[in-house]
């Protein structure tokens, strides 16, 4: 099952998110990530969504989305250079001073910020690719028990001159 990314321009009005979500559930498609926000035109929202599926399913999803009156444009990111980032908060509780210092090192290496701090806990604000966030989670979970994670889902934009992700 390949992961593929799509961007949708949709009408910014009540029920449109439900329409898209309903299409996925009604046809048994899966998305692993979906973000939505207003664009420069307040009547238009842009969704970034990640779909896991085989090629025919992916083609069918694109067609079905295009078929929705509420969907203005579907962009397939499969062969597109992108800037794509995900925001994630990672909170670790119940750690000693040494463990907190270790977490500072991890944050430095990963290039994420420690934005809050307490006697036994620490909060990282991570703004990086989904894959890097996955790696960070895996690393922290190896050594810490009380980890809570809040992920925002990826947003993506087509690059101007950069050729890779």
């Amino acid at each position: 099952m390949k992961k593929r990314w799509l961007a949708l321009y949709v009408e910014n009005r009540p029920g449109v998110l439900a329409r898209i979500a309903g299409l996925f559930s009604g046809k048994s498609y899966n998305f692993s990530s979906l973000t939505v926000g207003e664009t420069e035109d307040p009547t238009v929202s842009r969704m970034t969504l990640c779909v896991a599926g085989d090629d025919p399913t992916f083609e069918q999803i694109k067609k079905q989305l295009n078929h929705c009156v509420e969907v203005i444009k579907v962009t397939d990111f499969t062969n597109t250079a992108l800037h794509m980032k995900e925001i994630m908060y990672l909170k670790v509780k119940g750690c000693s001073l040494k463990e907190k210092n270790d977490l500072f090192n991890i944050a430095q290496v990963f290039g994420v910020k420690v934005v809050d701090y307490g006697k036994n806990s620490l909060l990282m604000e991570c703004f990086q690719t989904e894959e890097r966030n996955n790696s960070l989670i895996a690393l922290v979970r190896e050594s810490y028990k009380q980890v809570s994670i809040v992920r925002g889902g990826s947003v993506a934009v087509e690059s101007i001159s950069v050729q890779d992700r």
Partner: peptide
């Protein structure tokens, strides 16, 4: 509108 969303070509409430 929520009920028929997936069984019609288009649906909308006039707000």
């Amino acid at each position: 509108v929520g009920v028929v969303r997936n069984i019609c070509k288009f649906t909308i409430m006039v707000r």
